[in-house]
Amino acid sequence: MKKLILICLVLLSVKSFGQTKSEGFVQVLLNRLEFGIKAGANYSDFTDASFATDPLVGFHAGGTVAFKLGKNFSVQEDILFSAVGAKSNNNEFGKQDIKLYYVSVPVLFRYKTNFGLYAEAGTQASFKVKEDVAGLAGGDFAKKLDFAATGGIGFQSKMGLGIGARYIYGLSKVGNFDASGSRNNFKNNNAQVSLFYTFK
């Protein structure tokens, strides 16, 4: 009977120790995570397009999460609803604003100084949710997926409020249409300016 009681006490001690270590690990993870919100303006255009375009002003808004790797390094991920595109000035699509709406997920490595200035670089995947293009004879103007490289700079105060600028350089072909006068191998390019707030 004494042996049984001793075994139960040992098992309970091991279980309690394991729970304590697990809770400590979870707490460390939570301490390294930062959540926030952000919104701002886009200034986008198509590059390598065979038809004439001008830049288009759009917007982006969504949430952010960062995992701190150390005092100055972190991995930043955003989930943004973003409106990009270009102004068309040719006979194929007429004079219109070609608007493409994406859910964009940029993932960037960030280095932030003790003062609050930071630089970041990474990649972005975007999933098209809507497009606003007139004059297409059936089908979509843009493909469902878009990939880009991105980099930026900014400043974040100790209160969590910050401002940032990014350039998003398209890597994948955008067009998904068949038109005799226009090639569909152009790419999205976008400059962003954002205001954000990180909850401490």
Rank of each mutant, 00 (worst) to 15 (best):
Ser44Trp: 00
Asp45Arg: 02
Phe46Gln: 02
Thr47Pro: 03
Thr47His: 01
Asp48Cys: 06
Asp48Tyr: 08
Asp48Asn: 13
Asp48His: 10
Ala49Gly: 00
Ala49His: 07
Ala49Asn: 05
Ser50His: 00
Ser50Gly: 12
Phe51Leu: 06
Phe51Ala: 01
Phe51Thr: 01
Phe51Gln: 02
Phe51Val: 01
Thr53Ser: 07
Thr53Glu: 02
Thr53Gln: 04
Thr53Ala: 01
Asp54Thr: 14
Asp54Leu: 08
Asp54Phe: 01
Pro55Met: 07
Leu56Ser: 05
Leu56Ala: 05
Val57Tyr: 15
Val57Ile: 13
Val57Gln: 12
Val57Ser: 13
Gly58Phe: 06
Gly58Ser: 07
Phe59Pro: 11
Phe59Gln: 05
Phe59Lys: 06
His60Glu: 10
His60Pro: 06
His60Val: 08
Ala61Thr: 05
Ala61Met: 12
Gly62Gln: 04
Gly62Asp: 08
Gly62Thr: 07
Gly63Tyr: 06
Thr64Lys: 11
Thr64Asn: 10
Thr64Gln: 09
Val65Asp: 02
Val65Phe: 05
Val65Asn: 05
Val65Gly: 12
Val65His: 08
Val65Ala: 15
Val65Pro: 07
Ala66Ser: 15
Ala66Cys: 08
Ala66Ile: 02
Ala66Thr: 13
Phe67Ala: 09
Lys68Tyr: 02
Lys68Asn: 13
Lys68His: 10
Gly70Trp: 00
Lys71Glu: 15
Lys71Asp: 14
Asn72Glu: 12
Asn72Met: 11
Phe73Ile: 14
Ser74Arg: 15
Ser74Asp: 10
Val75Thr: 07
Glu77Asn: 15
Glu77Val: 15
Glu77Met: 15
Glu77Cys: 15
Asp78Val: 00
Ile79Asn: 04
Ile79Tyr: 10
Ile79Phe: 14
Ile79Val: 14
Leu80Phe: 02
Leu80Ser: 03
Leu80His: 00
Leu80Trp: 00
Phe81Pro: 00
Phe81Ile: 13
Phe81Lys: 03
Phe81Ser: 01
Ser82Thr: 15
Ser82Trp: 12
Ala83Leu: 13
Ala83Cys: 13
Ala83His: 04
Ala83Val: 13
Ala83Tyr: 04
Val84Phe: 00
Val84Trp: 00
Gly85Tyr: 05
Gly85Val: 03
Gly85His: 03
Gly85Lys: 11
Ala86Ile: 04
Ala86Leu: 03
Lys87Leu: 09
Ser88Cys: 02
Ser88Ala: 05
Asn89Ile: 04
Asn89Ser: 14
Asn89Gly: 06
Asn89Lys: 15
Asn89Tyr: 09
Asn90Phe: 07
Asn91Ala: 14
Glu92His: 04
Glu92Lys: 03
Phe93Gln: 03
Phe93Leu: 13
Gly94Pro: 02
Gly94Cys: 05
Lys95Glu: 12
Lys95Asp: 12
Gln96Phe: 00
Gln96Arg: 04
Gln96Cys: 11
Gln96Met: 06
Asp97Arg: 12
Ile98Gln: 05
Ile98Gly: 07
Lys99Cys: 08
Leu100Met: 10
Leu100Glu: 08
Leu100Thr: 02
Leu100Gly: 02
Tyr101Arg: 08
Tyr101Val: 12
Tyr101Ile: 11
Tyr102Met: 02
Tyr102Asn: 06
Tyr102Arg: 04
Tyr102His: 08
Val103Pro: 12
Ser104Glu: 11
Ser104Val: 08
Ser104Asp: 06
Ser104Asn: 07
Val105His: 10
Val105Asn: 11
Pro106His: 02
Pro106Tyr: 00
Val107Asp: 09
Val107Pro: 08
Val107Gln: 07
Val107His: 05
